[in-house]
């Protein structure tokens, strides 16, 4: 959304033609990622996990924030990506980048097929169907213990050096840089997508489906397309997690993970592209700190934080930042 921020020194056409240009705050996450690498060398493993969750939340933002598809089953694609890359690596296919691509492709295919079926519905029915998809996949992974390791989890994942050069070291330096580069590519891709006519039309469908139909947009086709794209991205995030932790547990195909990524996005701000970059780190760090403080009931505090966010800061943290900025500008 191009909010009318400063005095219009530009003509409206000029303003809109330039709307996709990079602004300096968009570089902040990358400075933070770079700084963290040097500032917290003993937390690089956590850092890699945070970036994976950012990518996962970013993919959810496409579906939920832009297209307005409310889903509680987004972990299905994270899980499929994780198991695909994990199973490949456990069976001798240890080359990381191809594993990532295959993980994303398989998740995208699952997104395409399930999307074609469930995106005929809307609202509560759709919500239930997204839940059903992840439940079914979770149960399937549990049953197919010979392939997935079942409840014990998938073990024996070994990775080749990245590009044949960089070994995945104990300190997680390679993993951190690897995750950062994949996230950078994912961000560039999503940013381009949401500023393209396709992304604008997703916002249009969220804002007013009837109007999108009336201007001749193939609404359902676009919804299925974005669902599949987001699924592929979520699959890449899952594959990254399988590769960097060298373990896949059944929790990747759980409703809890879908809920967690949704909460991350709501914390940060939905439909803003950068909500994922704010919400995921806060959630992960809060989880880390709170679970040490209160190992049994830490989720209570997350819940409380969520209640406060949705009651007093509907646009998430970035929404609050926007409000403050607008007040200052006036």
């Amino acid at each position: 959304m191009f909010l009318y921020r400063a005095a219009p020194t530009l003509s409206p056409v000029e303003y809109m033609v330039r709307s996709h240009r990079l602004r300096w705050p968009e570089l902040l996450p990358w400075l933070a990622i770079l700084a963290a690498f040097f500032a917290f060398p003993s937390y690089l493993a956590l850092g890699a996990q945070v970036m994976i969750m950012v990518l996962f939340a970013l993919s959810l933002d496409l579906v939920l924030g832009y297209a307005g598809i409310v889903t509680l089953g987004h972990s299905a694609f994270f899980g499929v990506g994780a198991y695909t890359a994990g199973i490949l690596a456990a069976h001798g296919w240890g080359e990381p980048i191809s594993g990532l691509v295959v993980g994303g492709a398989v998740a995208g295919a699952v997104g395409l097929v399930t999307g074609l079926i469930i995106l005929r519905t809307r609202g509560l029915t759709l919500l239930m169907l997204t839940l059903a998809v992840v439940s079914m996949l979770g149960e399937a992974a549990n049953k197919a213990g010979w392939l997935t390791g079942g409840a014990d989890g998938l073990q024996g994942i070994t990775l080749d050096p990245l590009l044949g050069l960089f070994h995945f070291d104990l300190f997680g330096r390679t993993a951190y840089v690897y995750c950062a580069l994949v996230l950078l590519a994912g961000w560039m891709f999503v940013r381009r997508l949401v500023h393209a006519p396709f992304g604008r039309s997703l916002t249009g469908m969220r804002e007013n489906t009837a109007r999108m139909h009336a201007i001749g947009a193939p609404v359902r086709q676009r919804l299925v397309t974005v669902y599949a794209i987001a699924a592929a991205l979520a699959g890449v995030a899952g594959a990254l997690q399988a590769q960097t932790t060298q373990f896949v547990g059944l929790n990747v195909l759980s409703f809890e993970l879908s809920g967690a990524v949704l909460i991350m996005l709501i914390f940060g701000g939905v439909g803003r592209l950068y909500g994922a970059f704010v919400g995921a780190p806060i959630y992960m760090v809060a989880q880390d700190a709170l679970s040490r403080l209160d190992p049994e009931y830490w989720f209570f505090w997350v819940g409380l934080l969520l209640v406060v966010t949705v009651m007093f800061a509907r646009g998430g943290i970035l929404g609050v930042v926007d409000q403050i900025r607008r007040k200052v500008m006036r």
């Binding site: 033609v17 997508l193 500023h195 396709f198 039309s201 947009a217």
Partner: peptide
């Protein structure tokens, strides 16, 4: 052009 994915709307 509504379905274009890889060129900016402003372009």
């Amino acid at each position: 052009r509504g379905g274009d994915k890889f060129r900016f709307a402003g372009s």
